[in-house]
Design a protein around this nucleic acid. Structure first.
Lengths: 149, 149
DNA sequence: ATTTGTGCAAAGAGTTTGCAACCAT
DNA sequence: ATGGTTGCAAACTCTTTGCACAAAT
């Protein structure tokens, strides 16, 4: 069900993108479930913590390459920083905590109804959409509660 | 129904933000219906076309001031540039053309149903949300059609 | 062997900040 | 009068680019 490094490696090969150490390190980050959605800076920092550090140029160039190849996809949230996530066939949206910025995935999608509405009431041709809900995650709500006691 | 410069001026006074020439010029841009959603660069350019030019620092500082005062609100779209719109009591979402980047407003909002779903199935407390649909506006679709003939 | 990718350094955008002069209240 | 606001210049952050060397196919 979940994607593995082997899956990603196959995608790279299929698209004639060379499998380098740097690309492996970068892509492996996205496989950890806690790190679905990463900025260039977070990637840079995460790699420094583990082993080698990767040059920012390399990170940016690879993010662009992988985005163009459809292996990852860019998403922008309210802070204006470019974030990336793996492309999967699993359609989803995000719940983003206003306090800790962690993100969880939610499977519900209102698009079909809206789509009908838009097609019926406007001349606009819908192609893709983004839907993000901002609020407070269970952990932050719990911490908040405990702080009050 | 639509907001006027007098309305905005009253909001500034109520919040003890001085009514300067620069702030009037900047806010008046948002009153034109074609210019709901503006980047700092678009503001800079628009003001140069009309009369005086405004220093970028002044634009950025005022966008921040007005955002904090709740008179305008920041929105980020897929290109990662910060955009601003007037805050109104009129809840809406955006249709953004992938070709010309123009934006139209749509009143339909799926949030209530999703809200129920999220509250029922997660521990997340929803506070606010964003929903943008990307596609092709009627004008661009028409131009495309005519290009084919 | 050839092509593509990497690190480094420098350059480029967009944005922020310190400071002196200016303006709204 | 005075406290907030502006313009200018410099600084800062994030990102991109040119080039020589290194690595993957």
């Amino acid at each position: 069900m979940n994607m593995t490094w082997e899956d990603l490696k196959n995608q790279l090969k299929k698209k004639c993108i060379k499998v380098t150490r740097q690309r492996e390190q970068l892509l492996r980050l996205f496989l950890s479930p806690e790190q679905h959605l990463l900025t260039a800076a977070q990637i840079h920092q995460a790699l420094q913590l583990t082993d080698q550090n990767m040059n920012p140029s390399t990170i940016y160039r690879n993010l662009e390459t992988l985005d163009e190849a459809g292996i990852i996809r860019q998403i922008s949230l309210n802070d204006g920083l470019a974030r990336y996530e793996l492309v999967t066939d699993h359609h989803h949206h995000h719940l983003i905590c206003l306090q800790c910025n962690r993100m969880q995935v939610v499977d519900v999608c209102p698009f079909e109804e809206i789509n009908r509405f838009v097609k019926q009431h406007t001349n606009f041709l819908p192609v893709e959409h983004r839907f993000e809900i901002y609020g407070y995650c269970s952990e932050c709500r719990q911490n908040e509660e405990e702080g009050k006691k």
